[in-house]
């Protein structure tokens, strides 16, 4: 499936090198999604945009995202706030008449943006996600307090102070544990994570070359 898709899309020689590189990275991600090839069958009906509860806050609507991908404008999609505003509620995915997994497509865009560090200005989402991953990799579980404290300190310490009353309120109801949760077999988890990362290096090398 992938070879057909990549060939078909990459033959457009009007595309810049960067754009065609982004395109193959995107298609590689999409390939992993069962039914991912359906992205080619978009009829631009706008059901996704109409169903999206947060499209009002996006600078590129979900429908336009697919149109831009087709037109060879992936970089503008990556620079938009759209992929970060998607709250992953799957309303578009279940309604799409062409069966396109739009939410999973947004995830694919997010991962490419993360890898290449292409973000819209002043965007906090990737900071939050990266912290989340580092906490989970270390302890095996999310530690909400740890996550929000570090996120606040990193992005907006003033806002963090504004959150103190709510935190205190939750604490008084026993909803903020002081003892950090973690799994016992952290060694096993990190060996699994290391293994995924090392397999990736060996698997991906030939495809880059």
């Amino acid at each position: 499936m992938r070879s057909i898709m990549t060939q078909e899309f990459q033959e457009d020689f009007f595309m810049s090198r960067k754009e065609s590189e982004l395109r193959s990275a995107f298609l590689e991600q999409v390939e992993l999604i069962p039914g991912g090839h359906k992205i080619k069958q978009c009829i631009q009906c706008g059901t996704c945009t109409g169903s999206c509860p947060v499209s009002f806050a996006m600078d590129i609507t979900p429908r336009k995202t697919i149109a831009l991908f087709r037109a060879g404008e992936i970089e503008s999609v990556l620079r938009s706030n759209t992929i970060w505003i998607c709250a992953s509620c799957y309303a578009c995915t279940v309604r799409c008449p062409a069966g396109i997994k739009i939410t999973d497509m947004m995830y694919a865009f997010k991962r490419i943006a993360m890898e290449r560090k292409i973000f819209p200005k002043g965007l906090p989402v990737h900071a939050l996600s990266s912290l989340f991953v580092s906490i989970v990799n270390k302890y095996g579980r999310n530690q909400e307090v740890n996550l929000l404290l570090r996120f606040g300190l990193k992005t907006n310490p003033t806002k963090l102070i504004a959150q103190i009353p709510l935190g205190w309120c939750l604490r008084s109801k026993g909803r903020v544990p002081l003892k950090s949760t973690k799994i016992k077999d952290r060694k096993q988890l990190s060996s699994i994570i290391r293994r995924v990362l090392s397999m990736r290096k060996t698997v991906q090398k030939p495809s880059i070359a």
Binding site: Q29, L32, S88, Y107, A108, K110, R111, M114, V125, H126, L128, S129, S130, F132, V133, V136, G140, R141, N142, I183, K184, D185, L189, I192, I193, V196, L197, R200
Partner: peptide, 20 residues
């Protein structure tokens, strides 16, 4: 000894690792 499910935020950084 369950661990994090690999939720949304993890999924947006690294899909295959989240699934693993």
């Amino acid at each position: 000894d369950w661990n994090c499910c690999g939720a949304t935020m993890y999924m947006s950084i690294d899909g295959p690792l989240a699934s693993t």
